[in-house]
Design a protein around this nucleic acid. Structure first.
Lengths: 225, 225
DNA sequence: TAATTTTGTTAGACAAATCTAACATATATA
DNA sequence: TATATATGTTAGATTTGTCTAACAAAATTA
């Protein structure tokens, strides 16, 4: 069984690599900065985690999770986010207070506890920060933030913000039926003038690339494990 | 701030001494047996806790809690019993499963969490084992188990069991209106024949010392802190 | 390519909590 | 009271997780 500290290293590695969606390995200094410890300390732990076959690591190289390391990391993330949801929904903690307490609660060892908590909260999909919660099987939908311009044709996504805050732009946003949390589907792209067809609330509209570039969306990237 | 381990030693000392209602100090071996560690380990910790002014202790002597040590111990007991109540009432854990998980949860450091949990559970007075839960001020009603013969005149207590299991005795118990959880008040004691007058459900009856000796009761001993 | 900077490693130290084995003191018993 | 038993202490070792300071390798830049 992994110690609290080991769990924290595995979680850090998971968040830096897999969940970031942007890289597959992490450097020693990077992990140290993420955890607020010294690189020397991380180095010792990397050797230990390698010996336990929880990470892949070679001297002077970068680190990544093995299958069993990833499993533990996802369990910790699941516990963290379920506890955050509990604190927020049931105990009326505010959005910004839940994290520090969940940092402690995530290390409580009891499979039964966490599965019962999951049921008590009615199997939530998102924590109070909007991050996805892994299910009991350890499956986790990874979402990535980007602009609507970058979304692929045929994909669905969720609007989570705007880049431009001018009145003109926001009025246009409104007119198209767009708002925070609104689901958007990209239908097509015209080769001739680059206009993008989107579907919002079953209505189809065309928007310019310039407009699309100012809509921040979140889309499901992949399913982990 | 006390470490998890220090908290466990303080809690053990509290339970052995103050909460037991029977003694005011604990020996090194006794503490070791209670915690499942070796006396040598306890000895080291006693020195440390003394240095932190959390206990009173002299070489080759017995140990007891100081005011600040007691405060911490009661907070840990409060957390333990509130978490047990949460697991039992909200997550449908069974009576005998709650303890081991609460042993972990009792060390979570967040005053806000425990006070909100208390409110969420509607300020319970007892945990699933029937033990009293200290309130937010650190006050705790201590109950002591003894026989009805030992109860003082004028005091109220609660029947929690019997010593004799013969049919004759149990029928007599029934006839007097006694049962588990029944409140009993000791009215008087006759100097002439030692008979004891008790009040049960507003009816007064006389019982013999032999009878009283076979009724196990729980009574509020005092209010701690 | 050579020098500099960034990144990673090693060695040695420390604190916390535990152990075992040997020793010391206190209490009980013959 | 002398011995035996129970209780408590000490010294030295171990594990875990951390540090600092010195060193080594890799990457970047002039």
């Amino acid at each position: 069984m992994a110690s609290n500290t080991e769990e924290n290293y595995l979680k850090a590695l998971f968040q830096i690599t897999i969940e970031s969606g942007s890289k597959i390995e992490a450097g020693t200094n990077e992990i140290a900065a993420h955890l607020g410890v010294k690189p020397a300390t991380v180095n010792d732990m990397l050797k230990k985690l390698k010996a336990k076959k929880l990470i892949q690591y070679e001297k002077y190289g970068k680190s990544s999770l093995t299958k069993s390391g990833k499993k533990i990391a996802i369990e910790v993330v699941r516990k963290h986010r379920l506890w955050e949801t509990f604190l927020f929904q049931k105990l009326a903690f505010s959005w910004d207070e839940v994290h520090v307490v969940a940092e402690q609660l995530e290390h409580i060892q009891s499979k039964k506890l966490i599965d019962k908590l999951d049921a008590f909260l009615d199997y939530p999909a998102f924590d109070p920060h909007g991050d996805t919660i892994p299910n009991a099987k350890g499956e986790l939908a990874i979402t990535v933030k980007k602009t609507l311009l970058e979304e692929k044709i045929g994909h669905q996504c969720k609007m989570i913000g705007v880049k431009d805050n001018s009145a003109a732009f926001l009025q246009y946003v409104n007119k198209l039926g767009l708002s925070i949390n609104q689901t958007i589907k990209v239908i097509s792209r015209q080769p001739f003038d680059d206009l993008i067809e989107i579907e919002v609330n079953k209505k189809i509209n065309s928007i310019s690339p310039k407009f699309a570039e100012n809509i921040i969306i979140e889309c499901k990237e992949c399913m982990i494990k």
